[in-house]
Design a protein around this nucleic acid. Sequence first.
DNA 1: GTGAAAGCGCTAACAA
DNA 2: TTGTTAGCGCTTTCAC
Lengths: 360, 360
Amino acid sequence: MSENVLMSPEEDPGPAPLRRPTLSQVAEASGVSLKTASRVLAGEPHVRAQTRQRVVLQAQRLGYQRNSAASLLAAGRSVDHLGVITGDLTNPFYAGLTQGVEDGLREHGLHVSVASSAESPDSEWTLARGLASQRCLAVIVVSAMEDHSRYVQLQQGGTPVVFVDRRARGLEADSVILDNVTGGRAAARHLLDHGHRRIAYVGDYDWLPTQRDRVIGFGEAMEAHGVTDWRDLVRSGAHDTPGARAITAELLSLEDPPTALVAGNNLSALGVSLELAAHAASRPTPALIGFDDVDWAGLVGLTVIAHDPVEMGRHAARLAVKRLTDRESPAETIVLPVTLIARGSGERPPSSRPQREESP
Amino acid sequence: MSENVLMSPEEDPGPAPLRRPTLSQVAEASGVSLKTASRVLAGEPHVRAQTRQRVVLQAQRLGYQRNSAASLLAAGRSVDHLGVITGDLTNPFYAGLTQGVEDGLREHGLHVSVASSAESPDSEWTLARGLASQRCLAVIVVSAMEDHSRYVQLQQGGTPVVFVDRRARGLEADSVILDNVTGGRAAARHLLDHGHRRIAYVGDYDWLPTQRDRVIGFGEAMEAHGVTDWRDLVRSGAHDTPGARAITAELLSLEDPPTALVAGNNLSALGVSLELAAHAASRPTPALIGFDDVDWAGLVGLTVIAHDPVEMGRHAARLAVKRLTDRESPAETIVLPVTLIARGSGERPPSSRPQREESP
DNA sequence: GTGAAAGCGCTAACAA
DNA sequence: TTGTTAGCGCTTTCAC
């Protein structure tokens, strides 16, 4: 494990191991006792202005930085961070989740340390271990792994793990997930009810449990309505906007293209929308239902399967905090509801004409 | 300062001060030495499986949690977090910024601890002090204060502060900001070039330097084109979508309404767009330029003054890291460029007809 | 594979 | 207002 700071690689550490200056060095340099220096640099009162100034000056000169670990230890407090691992805060879903965790932790005086895995199981594991190894009381993770049995290592080391959005598999651990099956079913039903039969599903990565569950619900509803060849129009791998766009283009170019689409997540909803907009001039616009209530949904009239990422984060925080004091009770799984919000795009009938009347 | 954890308020601490179990207690309970327990719970090798199991069991039974502060201290490492204070991660701009900071810090083995001020100077200060008082090596803040002289306290305590998006005022400190004046000027010019004269500015809070600078640039361009009454159409206070919507409605109801609008930030761009869409049926759609390159801009053809929040975060991280080793050099201010991206909404001429031909 | 001793750098009590 | 003395709970030698 590397010293966490800051010697440029080209610069030789030199003879002196270049330890950071300590409080006692500052104290010595300023000709005061350790305690006085401590008082000054901890912002405590009861120090003569003159003395204070002298200490501040020396601290600056030496480039002093408080060793927070020592400070916390001596003060009898513990580190008060929980780690949150998501794909990338650039995705509003993850950002909302993280905000929710922070909200939920604040009342307990706990803080959140963020880390992005970029959906790589390897980075995720590195981050999780790094967070757990010291630094964090618990880890909350949107996992990119299919199996979570390795996480038992963290649990054994005394670090509780809470899985969000994607439930724990191969491990006894708390989870907060969405009711994805119901969501998929609701989307399909809604479109079926509006007369569609050829409904495509533009899905996320195949290995994602969220993706799988949504497709399961989707399929159930299709079968229930007597549509048996629904699998032909199910696609996966669209985790981002360009990916979804490409898949949509492929679907629209089919001989018998879908009259409706379901987008598997927030980013793919944008990709599908973009592609539909590009095609709007030349053909009837298919109906569309997205997952996640994106902020622009109201603007373009996007019907969505909505849920509340912030709320999800709050739940995760709650579970994590609970687990901090109670390691015994069995793992809990919270399933959050989803709601269909109709805004127009999901109510277009199969024969729908393009939005803009530019067709011949 | 409160013990940071977790006795439900109703539960009496009881006679025993209820200190968390320590490693030596676990060791004793499992009949091994302190060191062996340490090895097990730190995941080190060289422990017989049987012994390991015994320790893990006792740790679980006692509800042991590692004291990370002690662990870090003994290992000679320091806490490796920088604090990032923004308004709220729910705002994609702040989320992007935070992601950028994380990116920039990763290569240094540093981590980010997030905190949301909800744009309240009081919360911000509480958070900043909490972060700095121990826990964090430096603080990166999108400040909701007009004056930052209080932050000198953190600096003196050895915690560098970097200001992002809103530059340090009343304090010598590093800052990363956008070229807001140029941005405002570019927006106005672009609209003027497309024949507009009555251009409204739907701005953020009045006290925000970003807001002020954007309006300054905006005004300069207007004056340069001989429009002197531009102030009549400048509004402020639209920090969120509903606020922007209300202001837009007010502007559109004017006797001589604007033929073009500039939205002061990402959220207000959405608000303005929503209101324009609602009015599209009844009157010509004004031109619109937004600040911030929102993800849905491509979908609705929104012309924007773009910049890169992630990049901004990276710069902030760089400055903070630099300041960790070099407290001496003068404060630095990085001004990041903005770019106008034309997508249609900003190129509508003053006489533009509504998008959807539903008018009588 | 396991253990004993010696601190890590700081703050809390107390004393002066 | 300032200084002295003990640790905080853990990891690190180095011995066994």
